[in-house]
Computed example of a mutant assay.
Amino acid sequence: MGASDELLRRAEPSALLGRDGVVHSLNAAMATALGRPAEECVGRHIWELLPESRRPVSSAS
């Protein structure tokens, strides 16, 4: 079992992200925390899935 499998088996919300912030996989606890089905999260940037109040502030003007 790899470290990524171990991470996703944890009870705490966990997700595997690419360097670009794209969700590759997540556990059920993370999907619940995001309030979305896991299938809707995979392939999207993590900040798109966060509530607007928790998203990073953009420095673009």
Rank of each mutant, 00 (worst) to 15 (best):
residue 28 A to I: 03
residue 59 S to R: 14
residue 26 L to M: 11
residue 31 A to P: 01
residue 22 V to K: 09
residue 37 P to Q: 15
residue 13 P to Q: 04
residue 43 G to I: 08
residue 28 A to T: 09
residue 6 E to T: 13
residue 7 L to I: 03
residue 46 I to A: 07
residue 23 V to D: 08
residue 2 G to Y: 00
residue 10 R to H: 12
residue 23 V to I: 15
residue 45 H to K: 14
residue 56 P to W: 08
residue 10 R to G: 14
residue 17 L to M: 09
residue 51 P to I: 03
residue 28 A to Q: 12
residue 49 L to N: 08
residue 10 R to M: 13
residue 48 E to P: 01
residue 42 V to K: 15
residue 36 R to G: 00
residue 44 R to F: 06
residue 45 H to E: 13
residue 47 W to G: 00
residue 51 P to M: 03
residue 60 A to N: 06
residue 32 T to H: 10
residue 12 E to A: 11
residue 37 P to V: 11
residue 28 A to D: 15
residue 54 R to H: 11
residue 6 E to A: 14
residue 15 A to S: 03
residue 32 T to F: 05
residue 51 P to V: 03
residue 43 G to C: 08
residue 12 E to S: 11
residue 31 A to L: 01
residue 52 E to W: 10
residue 48 E to L: 06
residue 52 E to V: 09
residue 52 E to L: 12
residue 54 R to V: 05
residue 31 A to F: 06
residue 12 E to N: 06
residue 12 E to I: 04
residue 36 R to Y: 10
residue 26 L to K: 13
residue 15 A to Q: 10
residue 46 I to P: 00
residue 59 S to K: 10
residue 7 L to Q: 05
residue 60 A to D: 12
residue 17 L to D: 10
residue 56 P to T: 12
residue 28 A to G: 02
residue 57 V to N: 00
residue 2 G to H: 03
residue 57 V to F: 09
residue 34 L to E: 02
residue 52 E to Y: 04
residue 59 S to H: 14
residue 4 S to Q: 14
residue 10 R to L: 13
residue 27 N to Y: 08
residue 18 G to C: 05
residue 60 A to F: 13
residue 28 A to F: 05
residue 56 P to M: 07
residue 3 A to Y: 13
residue 51 P to Q: 05
residue 35 G to K: 04
residue 56 P to H: 08
residue 3 A to N: 01
residue 36 R to M: 15
residue 35 G to L: 12
residue 28 A to L: 13
residue 31 A to E: 09
